[in-house]
C-alpha cells in the first residue's frame, strides 16, 4: 500500500500506482479542496505543493511520489486559513465561483515563497492557472497585496 505525506500526516492509500495524485488526494485521502478541471496539466485547478514546488497533481501518479515527499494541499496551507495569500484574497473578494481558487492560491503561495516581491512579469510567468470566471486582475492584485504585507 502506498503512503503519502499530506499536510504533515502520513496516510496509507490503497489505490493502484498509476492513479494520478489528484485522485489519490480527492478520493482516497478524502481532501476535496484540490479540484479536477482538465486532468491534462492544463488548468492548474489541482495544484498542490510537492516539497514546496507548485505541482499539477493530475499530471503525476501516486506511484511516483514517495512517503518522504511533503505534499501540501489547500487544506494544509495554513492552520486557520490565514496564509497572507488567503487574507489578501478575502480582503479583495478575489474568488468568483471559486472552483479554480484552490489552485490559484497554491500557485500564488508558492510564488511568494520563492519571490517575496514578485513583479507583474513574475506573476504572468508563474500564474498560468485557468480561471473561467475572470478573476485574473484580482489574483494579481491579491499577490501584490500579500507581498506588501509580507515585507512589512
Amino acid at each position: 500500500m502506498a503512503k503519502l505525506n499530506v499536510n504533515g500526516r502520513v496516510v496509507e492509500v490503497n489505490a493502484s500506482p498509476d492513479t494520478p495524485l489528484l485522485w489519490a488526494i480527492r478520493d482516497h485521502v478524502g481532501l476535496t479542496g484540490t479540484k479536477y478541471g482538465c486532468g491534462v496539466a492544463q488548468c492548474g485547478a489541482c495544484t498542490v505543493h510537492l516539497d514546496g514546488v507548485p505541482t499539477r497533481s493530475c499530471g503525476i501518479t501516486l506511484g511516483s511520489v514517495t512517503e518522504t515527499q511533503k505534499i501540501v494541499t489547500i487544506e494544509g496551507l495554513s492552520p486557520d486559513g490565514n496564509h497572507p495569500i488567503q487574507v489578501a484574497w478575502r480582503a479583495l473578494d478575489v474568488p468568483q465561483c471559486g472552483f479554480c481558487q484552490s489552485g490559484m492560491i497554491m500557485a500564488a503561495a508558492a510564488l511568494l515563497a520563492e519571490k517575496p516581491r514578485p513583479t507583474d512579469e513574475d506573476i504572468d510567468a508563474a500564474m498560468t492557472n485557468i480561471c473561467r470566471c475572470g478573476t485574473y486582475n484580482r489574483v494579481r492584485e491579491g499577490i501584490h497585496r500579500a507581498a506588501r504585507g509580507l515585507s512589512g
Binding site: T32, Y36, R90, P95, S102
Partner: peptide, 16 residues
C-alpha cells in the same frame, strides 16, 4: 468568500 479560500466549499463534484 472565506470557504472559497480554504478549499472548504463543497461543489457538486465534491459530494460524498
Amino acid at each position: 468568500t472565506a470557504d472559497k479560500t480554504t478549499g472548504k466549499l463543497i461543489y457538486g463534484s465534491d459530494l460524498k
